[in-house]
Design a protein around this nucleic acid. Structure first.
Length: 187
DNA sequence: TGGCCGATATGCT
DNA sequence: GCATATCGGCCAA
């Protein structure tokens, strides 16, 4: 099977947000000359912590489409990458951490840190490491990125979402168990 | 139009 | 572990 035929397509994102968030773990994300394996994601639907609720204007996109790129700026200086989900409902998945697999030197230049483990272990870090552009907001994920499914089974861990003050009881953060590239150590 | 707050990262103790 | 930089989006007034 060719790489192109194996790629995730638009309809991958049509499913329930939690399914998509888990399904993205182990996926290789390729952008330009850099690539990494997605090892940490978070799901946002129409819960109290979601931008659909807290930023109804901008966050309306979570309901309007699926498989599109949603980029937001936080704390004045950091950008984060999401993919919208659910053909019918409301949702997006935040990409929180990558295990770099290609273009490591390029990522190092952009990030200015030495250790590979520090290049993309956080949502704003991976945004910089990949050299993403806020203008990608609204584009189709599958047009901008190449997304290759995991080679084998992925062991999934979960926890509450990070950095939020509302709906902290929801276990909607997902990660690859045992990965050294997470934004936080697993429990 | 002003003020509050945040899906963060970093550096220092 | 904790302080803090830094500013867009949102809403109250």
């Amino acid at each position: 099977m060719t790489q192109a035929a194996n790629r995730l397509d638009q309809e991958f994102f049509a499913a329930d947000t939690l399914q998509v968030a888990k399904g993205l773990l182990g996926v290789t994300l390729i952008y330009g000359d850099c690539a990494g394996i997605i090892v940490e994601t978070e799901a946002y639907k129409d819960d109290p912590a979601s931008h659909f609720v807290t930023r109804p204007n901008k966050g309306a996109m979570l309901a309007e489409n699926y498989g599109h790129i949603y980029i937001y700026k936080i704390y004045g200086m950091h950008h984060c990458l999401n993919f919208t989900t659910e053909k019918q409902g409301v949702g997006a998945v935040l990409i929180r951490a990558l295990e770099p697999t290609a273009g490591v030197e390029r990522m190092r230049q952009r990030r200015g840190v030495a250790r590979v483990v520090d290049l993309a272990n956080g949502p704003a870090k991976l945004f910089v490491a990949l050299g993403l552009d806020p203008a990608l907001h609204g584009r189709r994920a599958t047009e901008v990125f190449t997304l290759l499914p995991p080679a084998g089974p992925v062991e999934i861990g979960f926890s509450s979402r990070i950095g939020i003050s509302r709906a902290t009881h929801l276990p909607w953060r997902f990660y690859v168990r045992g990965s050294r590239f997470l934004s936080r150590r697993e429990p």
